[in-house]
Amino acid sequence: MSQFTDWDILRNLLLAARWTVLLSLIAFAGGSIVGLLLTFMRISRRRSLIWVTRIYIEIFQGTPLLMQLFIAFFGLGLLGIDVSAWTAAALALTLFSSAFLSDIWRGCVESLPKGQWEASRCLGLNYLQTMRYIILPQALRIAIPPTVGFSVQIVKGTALASIIGFVELTKAGTMLNNATFEPFKVFALVALIYFLLCYPLSRASQYLEERLNVAGKRA
């Protein structure tokens, strides 16, 4: 007989959800930093930087996140670099997120009319001044909704970290199921918690898209 009450199951899942949230925040913050660097490299005039960025993005967008987690955890171990499941999960999700965020932000920058660049040159602004005062403020307005929307994918992506032994929400659900033999109850609660984490982000993305109404205003 299981010694776990419904409250015990829920409490343990909520405790594990803390690590899901923390891992998501680290992946989003790290991915934003790396993604911003990649975005500047991609829109630069140096062909070598553009090609390096393209290869990076193709690799991380074209391979499964699960495989990236395996490489980060087991691959680094084969090279003599001892990493914990936490470090490997944070690293893999950061690199994965940066590739997609960079593509989102590059598209936002390139969606601006070419006249913006031409006008800035007429005003005598250099490249950095153009980016700071003209291009980035407008691109940021376009980028906010898809960026918030992509954060949902990061949260759901943390579930794959359970495969390398990182105890987050999905892994905790599996362990509780093995102890209680109540899969429907346990995984229904896991799904509910994921929904409660992701739904506000999805609604925020939709709200920002409607509020900013970038496409409509541009039309």
Results as ranks from 00 to 15, higher is better:
Ala16Trp: 05
Ala16Gln: 07
Ala16Thr: 12
Ala16Ser: 08
Ala17Thr: 15
Arg18Gln: 15
Arg18Val: 13
Trp19Thr: 05
Trp19Gly: 10
Trp19Phe: 15
Trp19Asp: 14
Trp19Ile: 13
Thr20Glu: 10
Thr20Lys: 09
Thr20Val: 07
Val21Ser: 03
Val21Asp: 08
Val21Pro: 01
Val21Leu: 11
Leu22Phe: 08
Leu22Trp: 10
Ser24Leu: 10
Ser24Arg: 08
Ser24His: 04
Leu25Ile: 12
Ala27Lys: 11
Ala27Gly: 05
Ala27Val: 11
Phe28Asn: 06
Phe28Cys: 11
Phe28Gly: 11
Ala29Gly: 04
Ala29Met: 12
Gly30Phe: 02
Gly30Thr: 11
Gly30Glu: 04
Gly30Ala: 07
Gly31His: 02
Gly31Tyr: 00
Ser32Gly: 07
Ser32Phe: 03
Ser32Ala: 14
Ile33Gly: 01
Ile33Arg: 04
Ile33Cys: 07
Ile33Asn: 03
Ile33Trp: 03
Gly35Arg: 14
Gly35Lys: 14
Leu36Ile: 09
Leu36His: 02
Leu36Arg: 06
Leu36Val: 15
Leu37Met: 14
Leu37Ser: 12
Leu37Gln: 05
Leu37Thr: 13
Leu38Gln: 04
Leu38Thr: 09
Leu38Arg: 05
Leu38Ile: 14
Thr39Lys: 04
Thr39Trp: 01
Thr39Ala: 12
Phe40Met: 14
Arg42Glu: 08
Ile43Cys: 03
Ile43Val: 15
Ile43Asn: 03
Ile43Lys: 05
Ser44Phe: 03
Arg45Tyr: 03
Arg46Glu: 09
Arg46Gln: 10
Arg46Thr: 06
Arg46Met: 12
Arg46Ile: 10
Arg46His: 13
Arg46Leu: 12
Arg47Ser: 14
Arg47Asn: 03
Leu49Ala: 02
Leu49Gly: 00
Leu49Met: 08
Leu49Trp: 09
Leu49Pro: 00
Ile50Glu: 07
Ile50His: 10
Trp51Pro: 01
Val52Pro: 00
Val52Ser: 13
Val52Leu: 15
Thr53Ala: 07
Arg54Lys: 10
Arg54Pro: 00
Arg54Thr: 11
Ile55Lys: 01
Tyr56Pro: 05
Tyr56Glu: 00
Ile57Trp: 02
Ile57Pro: 02
Ile57Asp: 00
Glu58Met: 09
Glu58Phe: 05
Glu58Val: 11
Glu58Leu: 10
Glu58Lys: 01
Ile59Val: 14
Ile59Asp: 00
Phe60Tyr: 08
Gly62Ser: 04
Gly62Val: 02
Gly62Lys: 09
Gly62Asn: 05
Thr63Lys: 04
Pro64Val: 01
Leu65Asn: 04
Leu65Trp: 03
Leu66Trp: 09
Leu66Tyr: 06
Met67Pro: 01
Gln68Pro: 04
Gln68Asp: 08
Gln68Cys: 03
Phe70Asn: 06
Phe70Cys: 01
Ile71Met: 12
Ala72Val: 10
Phe73Asn: 06
Phe73Ser: 02
Phe74Asn: 11
Phe74Ile: 12
Phe74Thr: 12
Phe74Arg: 13
Gly75Trp: 03
Gly75Asn: 07
Gly75Tyr: 01
Gly75Met: 11
Leu76Glu: 08
Leu76Phe: 15
Gly77Trp: 07
Leu78Lys: 12
Leu78Val: 13
Leu79Val: 06
Ile81Val: 15
Asp82Asn: 14
Asp82Trp: 04
Asp82Tyr: 07
Asp82Arg: 15
Asp82Pro: 09
Val83Met: 13
Val83Gln: 11
Ser84Tyr: 06
Ser84Thr: 15
Ser84Ile: 07
Ser84His: 07
Ser84Gly: 05
Ser84Asn: 07
